[in-house]
């Protein structure tokens, strides 16, 4: 973030405090402190904290710490187990990109399954970040694709095109959001502050890749299949009425691990890497394979390439 931007944010912060929202919240919290016993106090303070939580980028490091702790308490309450919520920032000199070899993808949907487990998507409303399209040979018209194929794959005379968030360099969803609840991180990943999203779904209308999914009801994740290693901007459990999307497993890749979909793919069709590293596999692919991106005419500049060999 540039100095100018951060200074702007500090000014806004001041203004906010002048406007008394924070002050009001603090006095309510103080009142709650005096009034009640430890447990009730915690609940009241946490509820108020949740209701008046500020935009993620406006939180000071201390406030981030408090917020993460509050969330861990909330998830512990809900899922009866310890959930870790991190807020690791982007690694220096990284810009993540993905390449997918269409000749290798065989439509098993192992990536989809791994993604759902890794990212704590609601099992009830069946949110999935990856759609694998079964397309007859000889066309790239997505309208000829079957999204609901089942049984033994690959089917003769068909190929498989997995689509997920393309992490556009020029993301229409970020432009669309009326409250800046979604933005692009320095490592190129488009993230959502689930506690700032108002659920208007304009980003969903704006996305040309159908990458954004909405929590139509309170998400249901069986406690035993909850992934307890989470990140604020990525796979922590969501609530109803907010958007979510693929973050290239931000909570994993910022620890230098590979995304869950890459790890799950049994054919090695998926290649993930740092676009700023000239020795990375993805750079080799971009330089040596005939790659293409979906809907390039829309000028979204996806960081997700497809190739075939």
């Amino acid at each position: 973030m540039s100095e100018k931007q951060s200074r702007k944010q500090i000014t806004r912060r001041r203004l906010l405090q002048v406007l008394g929202l924070t002050a009001g919240g603090a006095s309510l919290t103080a009142a709650a402190n005096k009034l009640t016993d430890e447990n009730t106090r915690r609940t009241i303070v946490d509820t108020l904290g949740g209701l008046f939580q500020n935009h993620f980028s406006r939180l000071s490091p201390d406030e981030v710490g408090e917020t993460l702790a509050r969330m861990e308490r909330k998830y512990k309450e809900k899922y009866k187990q310890d959930v870790r919520v991190e807020a690791t920032s982007a690694l220096p000199n990284t810009l993540f990109g993905y390449a997918l070899n269409l000749s290798r993808c065989r439509g098993y949907r192992d990536c989809v399954s791994a993604c759902v487990e890794e990212n704590n998507q609601s099992r009830d409303s069946e949110i999935q970040y990856i759609r694998v399209l079964e397309i007859p040979d000889g066309t790239m018209n997505l309208e000829h694709a079957d999204h609901y194929y089942a049984g033994e794959v690959p089917k003769p005379d068909h190929f498989y095109l997995p689509v997920q968030c393309q992490q556009c360099e020029n993301p229409p969803c970020v432009k669309a959001c009326p409250v800046e609840a979604t933005w692009q991180e320095p490592d190129g990943i488009v993230v959502i502050d689930y506690d700032w999203c108002i659920g208007c779904r304009y980003c969903q209308a704006a996305c040309p890749y159908w990458a954004r999914k909405f929590n139509w009801n309170e998400p249901v994740i069986p406690a035993e299949s909850l992934n307890t290693q989470t990140h604020y901007l990525s796979n922590r459990p969501r609530e109803k009425g907010v958007m979510e999307k693929c973050t290239f497993c931000l909570h994993r890749v910022r620890k230098q691990q590979l995304p869950a979909c890459q790890e799950a793919c049994p054919t090695g069709a998926r290649v993930f890497g740092n676009l700023l590293d000239p020795d990375s596999e993805i750079r080799y692919i971009l330089a040596n394979k005939k790659v293409f991106r979906l809907k390039e005419d829309l000028n979204t500049e996806p960081k997700f390439w497809y190739y075939a060999d």
Partner: peptide, 22 residues
């Protein structure tokens, strides 16, 4: 690689049923 069973097809949102081109 040998053909094998794909993981389950996506479901539509709860309360709705999916409909595909076919």
């Amino acid at each position: 690689f040998k053909p094998r069973e794909a993981w389950q097809p996506p479901q539509a949102r709860t309360g709705l049923t999916a409909t595909s081109v076919h």
